[in-house]
């Protein structure tokens, strides 16, 4: 091997090493930026049918066709100055909520499936969950309001009005309560709330919702079903054992 080809080889190897070095340094910085954006706590309200935040961020091609399809100008695309991951659609309920079009045009406009076509009924959408700040809710303060209940498009199931004892008075208060099994998170209640800052807000369910866990047994609710479910394996397989009554009585039967 002569000196020229050695020199060329050295130059070639040096070039490769430099390229790899730049690529890996740049790649690390790039990856850390991506991780930070993509794994941020969900804060923005997504259009109906949006997948889980992680899958949504992966699938959304940031084209804004949902934004154009929305007849109420509800949706916006996050730009560089927004908190929301860049280019993805979101809405601010207090400005313009989702009016729950029955034909769901935003979802239909989505070319990638980030807004899943599996959503057939707009009432099955779960954009968020309404949460009431009872310290600032007019009804909970003892006034008559219930605007959120009257504006709610999922009538009488997402928000109900219950009576509640009032302090130092024989009269009752009528207070709104949100039910997560029916609330779509459309934000019409948040838009309608008459307080300075809305006392009912749409938030991501995972930020406020707890989970009971399977080991708590609510014997007084749906007695039969729950007893059946929480009956120990041994007894369940033996059909001759009478699983009634419920509660903790199973501890007194069998050979525990």
């Amino acid at each position: 091997m002569n000196s020229i080809s050695l020199k060329a080889r050295r130059k070639f190897l040096k070039g490769i090493t430099q390229n790899v070095a730049i690529a890996s340094t740049g790649g690390l910085i790039w990856a850390s930026l991506l991780q930070k954006e993509a794994r941020a706590m969900p804060s923005a309200m997504r259009p109906p049918g949006a997948l889980d935040e992680k899958d949504f961020n992966a699938k959304c091609i940031k084209c804004g066709q949902c934004v154009t399809a929305c007849p109420y100008d509800t949706l916006k695309l996050a730009n560089t100055s927004d908190q929301t991951p860049i280019g993805t659609p979101y809405f601010i309920a207090r400005d313009i909520p989702c009016y729950m079009c029955p034909d769901i045009p935003c979802m239909k406009a989505c070319p990638t499936g980030a807004l899943t076509p599996k959503l057939e009924n707009i009432e099955d959408a779960r954009m968020g969950l309404a949460v009431i700040d009872i310290e600032n809710c007019l009804s909970w303060l003892g006034l008559r309001c219930e605007i959120c209940h009257r504006e709610c498009p999922v009538k009488d199931s997402a928000i109900t009005v219950e009576h509640h004892p009032r302090k130092l008075s024989k009269h009752a208060m009528f207070v709104p309560l949100v039910h997560s099994d029916a609330c779509t998170g459309c934000g019409i209640c948040e838009k309608a709330c008459p307080t300075d800052e809305a006392a009912i807000k749409i938030v991501h369910p995972e930020l406020v919702q707890g989970s009971v866990g399977e080991h708590y047994r609510l014997g007084w609710e749906n007695e039969g079903a729950i007893t059946q479910e929480f009956t120990p394996e041994k007894m369940r397989s033996d059909t001759s054992v009478d699983v009634e009554p419920g509660g903790l009585d199973y501890l007194n039967t069998g050979d525990l």
Binding site: W30, E37, K54, A58, K62, G64, V67, L77, P85, I86
Partner: peptide, 21 residues
């Protein structure tokens, strides 16, 4: 990372989006 890497920083998409939206 599970997200479209260049789409998150692409000046082309960012500029074009901001002109329209």
């Amino acid at each position: 990372t599970g997200v479209a890497a260049f789409e998150w920083i692409s000046p082309i998409s960012i500029f074009h989006r901001e002109v329209i939206f």
